[in-house]
Write a protein that binds this DNA or RNA. Structure first.
Length: 302
DNA sequence: CGAGTACCCTGTTGGC
DNA sequence: TGCCAACAGGGTACTC
């Protein structure tokens, strides 16, 4: 269940273990992992082999590794690339539900969930991408204004220094929908998933079906203050549970669960008022809320 | 175009 | 014990 904090933890791991290294070999196990790379596995491998990883970047739940351009292009013998900042190659990754990056010594991996393997010219560790439920994926892409072309529709996330609350609030109020649908809409604001949406709504004492057009500036500020707090707390927790071998934290590991107030706590008392937390079907998943702190609004939009 | 839904996928859990 | 339904859910394709 990786949301922004988990993906940020992975990004930091990749920055520490992979940035600055040159890819020696790329191996893809099974076609589904690169289904969004339409040019196919041969092209995927060819465009990454021999490339040096410059950094590890993230927007919302997406990760990417920009690559140093080959020397021939750096010297201007290839197509123009630098004028508008476009044309830089990068590896884009989405963890989906269960994707993991592991930086481990080279060796045999019998895991049926191993989807991709990268080796580097300086030896260990190699980088593996594992994904049990195969909602995750990899593709090679080009940067457009510093962002992979395939994710230009993903909005800035609340951690982004250029995140513009005023613009996001205005866009939210133009929608005719409920506040949780808006929080989960990655084209409005990215990085928030089911868990942190419920946690932020509980903190802001808002029902998930509150109509966005009826929300006032103070309520939206309170909601996004709550979003910031929840994300920052989870990022700090992810940072402390860091393991040198594992680039990724396991989404199932319990480091964040102790601090959750409503998510997964059906029937347990609300820590503010004592009312029993409710689980309700919503958008083909579940929403958790306190029935007293977050009552059903009059003009609900489900 | 905005809003809302179906589907992709597999391992785990719980009811009968 | 064994089988099947429910559940987990982000993103995209699709319909209306």
């Amino acid at each position: 269940m990786p949301e922004l904090p988990e993906v940020e933890t992975v990004r930091r791991g990749l920055a520490g273990h992979v940035a600055g290294r040159t890819i020696a070999t790329v191996e893809i196990l099974g076609p589904r992992t690169i289904r969004r790379h339409v040019a196919g596995p041969g092209d995927f491998v060819a465009r990454l082999t021999g490339r040096r990883v410059l950094a590890a970047c993230r927007r919302g739940k997406y990760l990417w590794l920009p690559m140093l351009e080959p020397e021939s292009r750096e010297r201007g013998w290839g197509p123009a690339t630098s004028a508008e900042g476009a044309g830089e190659t990068c590896l884009v990754a989405h963890l989906g539900m269960s994707g993991q990056f592991l930086a481990v010594p080279a060796g045999v991996d019998r895991s049926p969930h191993l989807r991709a393997r990268f080796t580097f010219t300086d030896g260990d560790p190699e980088l593996r991408f594992l994904d049990q439920r195969t909602f995750g994926g990899l593709l090679v892409d080009e940067l457009v204004d510093g962002v992979p072309q395939s994710i230009v529709h993903i909005a800035r996330d609340p951690v982004d220094p250029l995140f513009d609350r005023g613009a996001v609030f205005a866009a939210m109020r133009r929608r005719r929908t409920g506040v949780k649908r808006a929080l989960l809409d990655q084209s409005l604001v990215s990085g928030i998933g089911n868990i942190y949406a419920d946690e932020a709504l509980w903190r802001a004492r808002l029902h998930y079906a509150r109509a966005t057009e009826g929300l006032r500036r103070p309520q939206l500020d309170a909601l996004f203050d709550a979003v910031d707090e929840v994300l920052a707390t989870a990022i700090r927790a992810g940072g402390t549970s860091f393991d040198a071998l594992y680039v990724a934290v396991n989404g199932e590991s319990g480091w964040f669960e102790r601090s959750l107030e409503v998510y997964g706590r059906e029937g347990e008392p609300c820590s503010r008022c004592g009312a029993a937390i409710r689980r309700e079907p919503f958008m083909n998943r579940s929403s958790y809320r306190c029935p007293r702190c977050q009552p059903v609004p009059r003009n609900a939009r489900w």
